[in-house]
Every structure is written in structure tokens, then in C-alpha cells.
């Protein structure tokens, strides 16, 4: 495996574990002895991360490696997807274009799925901003599936509970990047801590024009795009050009 091991994250993770173990009994005095002052102060303040992803669609070749890597990582059942790539074709010959739009859960700052969940099964983790589903609490009512403006959620046909991208929480917590980021052959995906101004993603966000999907819904997504084509089939009655969106999912229509 060609994992990009984020050294900073893993060291901090290690220190946090160490601190966590000791701090059960005592507080800041002990921790400052055990670790360097800088990391200790971060840990003591309980510095939280805010994970996000930036997808440079100019580097995406629409190969679906991310979708396949995701399927393999989680054994996602047939017919449903946590991560997928949409093709947007538009124009009338000879003026035509095709754009690729990789999609996943946006891990929104204001996730509607969390607001509507009646059992508290879906929540946004305080420590890193990842929106997760507690399969033990979820009752499969599909309210969150309805509420997500990005259609990122689905009912897992095997487990019968709501499911979606979780930013590969099992990998990220060990300092690795999510599987789709790791496998992207174009290097189109950048994953990191948006709250850390020195992270690669923060630098890229600061120096590039970026967009998010459906900004008007007020969800404040944490998945950003560079060069994304936001064209939608709704535009077909609007201009001279045709737009066709191929979602590579069931159902085939984007919602």
C-alpha cells in the first residue's frame, strides 16, 4: 500500500493517547512533564480538528478508482454507494464538454441529517467534525436520507440502517488518509484539517477559487471543489445547450 502517512497527525494522536491515559488521574502538570510543551498545551486545550476534503476536478479523469476503493474498503453492498463520480456532459456538437464530479458526504458544518435524526444515531463528532452513524441506535427510518441535500445517504440493504461516507474514520484515526484519497491516481483529492492554517488543504483553500455543492441550502459543506461544473439537468429548459448528468448510481437521476 502506498499510504501517505501524515506524520504530524500520527504524532499528535500518539501524544493525545498518552496524555489521555495519564490525565485520568491528574491534569496539566503531569502532561507538561511527559511531553514537549507545545504539543502538551494543544492537548490540554483539547484542540479540535475539522476534517475536510478538497477535490481538484481538473486533475480528475473520471476513472472511478475512488468509488472502487471505497467499495472495497467498506464492502459496500451492490446498488448503493458512499463515494461516486458523476459525469456532466453538456453542449451541442461541436461545442461540447464533459466534466467529472466526484461525490461523497460533505460532512457539513450544519448537517441536516443530524438535525432530523430522531434517535441521535447520527451525530457530528466534536473532535474532528466527521458526521457518523451509530448503527446500534439507527432505526432505519430514512428521515436522514430524505433530509440530505446531497443524496449522500442510503439505507444499507445488508444491515438495514442508514449508511454513508465517514471519511474512513478507521484510517484517519490512525493518521492515514481516506481510501479514496489514497487511491486517486490523479492526485485530485486533498484531505486534511481545515482548522489548521498550515495544513496542505488550508493552504490550497486559501490560494485557489473553490466552490461547494448547493451552498444555498446553508449546510456549509466541508468538501470543496476546484473547477467543478455545477451544471444540472434543470438547465435544459434554460439555454441553447443540453446538459446530461450521468450519476453511475441507482437511481440514475441526480437529486
Amino acid at each position: 500500500m502506498n499510504d501517505k502517512n501524515n506524520k504530524g497527525t500520527s504524532r499528535r494522536g500518539f501524544v493525545q493517547k498518552l496524555v489521555g491515559g495519564v490525565a485520568v488521574a491528574s491534569a496539566a502538570v503531569t502532561t507538561s512533564v511527559l511531553s514537549s510543551p507545545e504539543t502538551a498545551s494543544e492537548s490540554v486545550k483539547g484542540k479540535t480538528k475539522s476534517y475536510g476534503m478538497l477535490i481538484d476536478t481538473r486533475k480528475c479523469i473520471g476513472c472511478h478508482t475512488c468509488s472502487v476503493a471505497c467499495k472495497a474498503e467498506f464492502d459496500v453492498p451492490l446498488g448503493v454507494t458512499r463515494s461516486w463520480v458523476e459525469y456532466t456532459e453538456k453542449g451541442v456538437y461541436p461545442n461540447v464538454s464533459r466534466h467529472f464530479l466526484p461525490r461523497l458526504c460533505n460532512h457539513c458544518r450544519h448537517p441536516q441529517c443530524v438535525d432530523v435524526c430522531p434517535t441521535g444515531a447520527t451525530y457530528k463528532r466534536k473532535q474532528d467534525g466527521i458526521v457518523v452513524v451509530d448503527s446500534g441506535l439507527c432505526i432505519g427510518c430514512k428521515y436522514c436520507v430524505q433530509a440530505c441535500p446531497y443524496d449522500a445517504r442510503f439505507l444499507n440493504p445488508v444491515t438495514g440502517v442508514a449508511d454513508k461516507c465517514d471519511f474512513c474514520i478507521h484510517r484517519v484515526s490512525k493518521g492515514l488518509v481516506p481510501s479514496c484519497v489514497n487511491s486517486c491516481i490523479g492526485g485530485a483529492r486533498i484531505f486534511g484539517d481545515i482548522s489548521d492554517p498550515t495544513s496542505e488543504i488550508s493552504r490550497m483553500l486559501a490560494t485557489n477559487p473553490t466552490t461547494v455543492l448547493r451552498p444555498g441550502k446553508g449546510t456549509e459543506p466541508n468538501v470543496y471543489y476546484i473547477g467543478a461544473d455545477h451544471s444540472d439537468e434543470h438547465e435544459n429548459n434554460r439555454g441553447w445547450y443540453d446538459v446530461r448528468v450521468i450519476t453511475h448510481r441507482t437511481p440514475e437521476e441526480r437529486r
Binding site: 438535525d115 432530523v116 435524526c117 430522531p118 434517535t119 441521535g120 444515531a121 441506535l137 439507527c138 432505526i139 427510518c141 428521515y143
Partner: peptide, 13 residues
């Protein structure tokens, strides 16, 4: 039954 483990502001809850 999980619905009755808590009550939150979700209209369904």
C-alpha cells in the same frame, strides 16, 4: 424502541 431512549428536537422524535 430506540426512539424512546431519548427525545430531541427532531420532529420525528
Amino acid at each position: 424502541l430506540n426512539l424512546f431512549k431519548l427525545i430531541n428536537l427532531s420532529p420525528m422524535s
